Simulated scan of single mutants.
Amino acid sequence: MNRPLRVLVNGGGIGGLTLATALAERGHQVDVAELREQLEALGVGIIQPSNALHVMREIGVLDDCLAAGFEWEVLTICDPAGATLAKIPQPRMGDAPSNNGIPRPALARVLADAAVKAGATLRFGTTIGTLREDAHGIEAALTDGQVGRYDLVVGFDGIGSPLRRHLYGEKYAPEYTGFANWRVTVPRSPEVRGVVMSSGNLNAKALLTPISAEQMYLGSVFAEAEDFRPDPERAHEQLRERLAGFGGPIAEALAQITDPAAVVYSRISQVTVEEPWHVGRIVLAGDAAHASTPHLAQGAAMAVEDALVLAQSLDAEDTVPAALAAWEARRRPRAMWVQALSRAVLKQETGTATTPEEDELLKVGIPGAAHVLVRPY
């Protein structure tokens, strides 16, 4: 692109702030519209695998992420009793570390600071109200009364994306998978120096993920009715009941949970936008276009890859439409592969029947997927 662009990013989450930084560093004028009234991040912590850390290096915040989190190199597999079955070294992309666990609020602060430092404008308590596109750009009216003209509008506005509804109505509403994620932050056990995964013949899997020197989170996925919600008075007890067959470090982590409010419960849904992710100068990215189950720990990684590749595509192409077409050609196969394998692993781990296509994907497995995803994209 031979001129600076005006870009509106709807959504100030991980992907949106990464894009804002990448574009502002390249001299583009970027506004980020975030519906929340202030910078905050829901949930507990996330894993940044090596491909995500590669993106963090590219936008200049890798050291900040590592300082705020817990870098690790080895995945430990245990049986339900806690006995170690295997220790699997994790691959690296280039010179980025293998993995980093980080609290979501800490990552939000790192990315927001980087976006502002690069020159992006963050607007809280607002979202897109109306859009009018013509041959020369898009006029966007925000719900806080701000009106502006933009060369590009990007929807990093999550699995419930209002921008996706603007483009496609309810055609691609989130699909509940029948499973939900239970997570809770606890003090890190000294022996937990990387992800510890316990599974067996209990039709369940539990993970411990270090996210700082002091903290780790316990996570587990179970089949749950769509209308189920944990009891606010005994959510910690309900989680204990579901993981009653586990011993070792999982049981030790469970014993530390005394506050039901500390338990974070989220239904696992999926979105697959089968039509183009871009229409004119409007583009969907991250969970708005391709939300996956969490079984490869690649949801946020796919979002930040989307962001970096979009910035690179705008560098390489002469027009916005050409850049969006080139971006989607690079991103769709990889994101859809992650989504398909993540869903297959979910079905396998919970005893749900898989298709022949999913059986082929499962031959790659979680360790194999890590090696696939550190290849250049």
Rank of each mutant, 00 (worst) to 15 (best):
Y150N: 02
Y150I: 04
Y150E: 02
L152T: 07
L152N: 07
V154Y: 07
G155F: 06
G155T: 06
D157M: 10
D157W: 09
D157E: 10
L163T: 15
R164T: 11
R165Y: 11
H166A: 14
L167S: 14
Y168R: 13
G169E: 13
E170I: 12
E170K: 15
K171P: 09
Y172I: 11
A173P: 09
A173D: 13
A173T: 12
P174S: 07
P174K: 06
E175T: 15
E175L: 15
Y176M: 02
G178V: 04
G178Y: 04
F179V: 02
F179Y: 07
F179M: 05
A180V: 03
R183W: 06
V184D: 09
R188L: 04
S189W: 08
S189G: 08
S189L: 14
P190F: 08
V192I: 15
V192L: 06
G194W: 05
G194T: 09
M197G: 04
M197V: 12
S198K: 05
S199H: 09
G200C: 05
G200K: 08
N201H: 06
L202S: 05
L202R: 11
A206G: 09
L208T: 10
L208R: 08
T209D: 06
P210G: 08
P210D: 06
I211D: 00
A213C: 00
Y217N: 02
G219I: 01
V221D: 01
V221P: 01
F222H: 15
F222I: 08
E224K: 02
A225S: 11
A225K: 09
D227G: 06
F228T: 02
P230C: 12
P230L: 09
D231M: 12
R234A: 13
A235T: 06
H236D: 14
L239Q: 11
E241N: 13
E241R: 14
R242T: 07
R242N: 07
A244E: 13
A244W: 02
F246I: 05
A251V: 02
E252T: 14
A253W: 03
A255Q: 13
Q256I: 10
Q256T: 15
I257C: 10
I257N: 04
D259N: 14
A261V: 08
A261E: 14
A261N: 12
A262C: 05
A262R: 11
V263R: 01
V263N: 01
V263L: 10
V264L: 00
V264Q: 03
Y265E: 01
Y265W: 01
Y265G: 00
Y265N: 00
S266G: 04
R267Q: 02
R267Y: 00
I268E: 00
V271R: 08
V271K: 06
V273S: 09
E274P: 04
